[in-house]
């Protein structure tokens, strides 16, 4: 077992993990944070995307042991994040989810897109979203929601990245 300390959604978590345990399994099984969904478990679908030290990260491609000393945010921890609040509203208004399985990864990635691009257009969003798979094929409304959220951002520049 490997001892780890993670700042998880702003709370210090100390635990012992098996070295082979993925960050995704640690979040879901040890911490009970089930907003992080596991689709493919090999980096292709993007459903498990979380934020590690401010960077969008596939939690199935990161070992829990490698997250030692890092700050990890899951969708649960971004409940009151202003950008996520805006995105949630637009996902609702544009009907950007059907079964909802891919939605946590879509939201985390959408937030990352708006932090790096000022008012992204349809083409940019589609390219940036190509690592997120929606098996309901609801892409049109997901793209619409992200573009609309970008238009709604008050400032001229992209949303500020995490500190």
């Amino acid at each position: 077992m490997t001892a780890i300390t993670v700042a998880l959604n702003g709370v210090k978590v100390v635990d012992d993990v098996e070295p082979r345990q993925s960050l995704a399994d640690f979040l879901r099984d040890r911490c009970g944070l089930t907003a992080t969904h596991l689709g493919c478990e090999h980096g292709a679908c993007g459903a498990c995307t979380v934020v590690v030290d401010g960077l969008a990260t596939r939690s199935c491609l990161t070992l829990a042991a490698m997250a030692d000393g890092r700050a990890v945010s899951t969708l649960e921890g971004l409940r009151d994040d202003p950008l996520m609040t805006l995105l949630r509203r637009h996902f609702h208004e544009s009907h950007a989810l059907q079964c909802g399985f891919c939605t946590p990864g879509m939201l985390i990635t959408a937030r990352d897109i708006l932090q790096r691009h000022t008012r992204p257009d349809d083409k940019t969003v589609r390219h940036e979203l190509s690592g997120q798979i929606c098996r309901c094929t609801g892409y049109a409304n997901i793209v619409k929601a992200i573009v609309a959220a970008g238009q709604d951002l008050p400032q001229a520049s992209a949303a500020p990245p995490d500190a």
Binding site: P19, R58, T62
Partner: peptide, 26 residues
Amino acid sequence: AIAGGQSLIPMLSLRVALIDLLVDIS
């Protein structure tokens, strides 16, 4: 050795690569 692990971790998960010791150089 593991750095980003973006290729190695899926290979370990799929058990295409089998190892005794993982050395984190990241």
